[in-house]
Design a protein around this nucleic acid. Sequence first.
DNA 1: CCAACTGTACCAATCCGCTTAGTACAGTTT
DNA 2: AAACTGTACTAAGCGGATTGGTACAGTTGG
Lengths: 122, 122
Amino acid sequence: MFSLNYRDARPIYEQVRDGLRHLVVTGAIREGDQFPSVRALAASLAINPNTIQRAYESLEREGYLYTVAGKGAFAARKADVAGERRERLLRQFDEAAAELLFLGMTVEELGRRVAGAKEGAK
Amino acid sequence: MFSLNYRDARPIYEQVRDGLRHLVVTGAIREGDQFPSVRALAASLAINPNTIQRAYESLEREGYLYTVAGKGAFAARKADVAGERRERLLRQFDEAAAELLFLGMTVEELGRRVAGAKEGAK
DNA sequence: CCAACTGTACCAATCCGCTTAGTACAGTTT
DNA sequence: AAACTGTACTAAGCGGATTGGTACAGTTGG
């Protein structure tokens, strides 16, 4: 599925959240697919179930995941992703672009990079 | 200069570091310019000098700042910015682009956004 | 109907990073 | 000499992250 990096300063639950989101963005998990259960994923990663739950709560706030009582957690539709998440991404994109341009990269180089990112996701 | 957001979950020293870096990227602070002294900036932001020093240490590791014993801290040349920092930025850029494309934005829209970021920096 | 699964909600305990406060020292400037 | 610069310690407190354990309500399959 994905792995944890204990050298990383980021909290484990953030690594889990980002790892799961990445699976959705890359198409490995598609709309309606069921996420692994809290306990199963915790056992798989050798961490506490509470930490997994925390990651799921965060993903649900972002709109990438919804839960059905007693059944499990499932991947939501793209349209359900929160506007707050989209704004955060745009800020991240703009800030990275501005600093890369300052450091000497060109608009063309970054444009090619965006096109390449689209290919990678297919 | 810039301000702190105590509602933000990010540590103060990171907010200071990012705020100072932003001043460099936008051209408010240029190569060779002196940064405010540790104590002066601490007083200005009403926080502990140790916290400012920590931000300066981080900026120095990134290559945006260098210090001269007894004189102060100064803005470095673009060429001195660490490769590690550049790689981190590229990863941030690529990840944001991939997720925005997944959410329905087009390559053209993001391309225009990059061009706009270049204008904003002038 | 029951056993096994699902998410969810607590609590207590521990660990670690962030921040503050204070003191101190070496180098530079005026 | 006085006033500034960055830097280096130590001690203390606070709060978030993580673990471990228990518990409950809803769903599913035998």
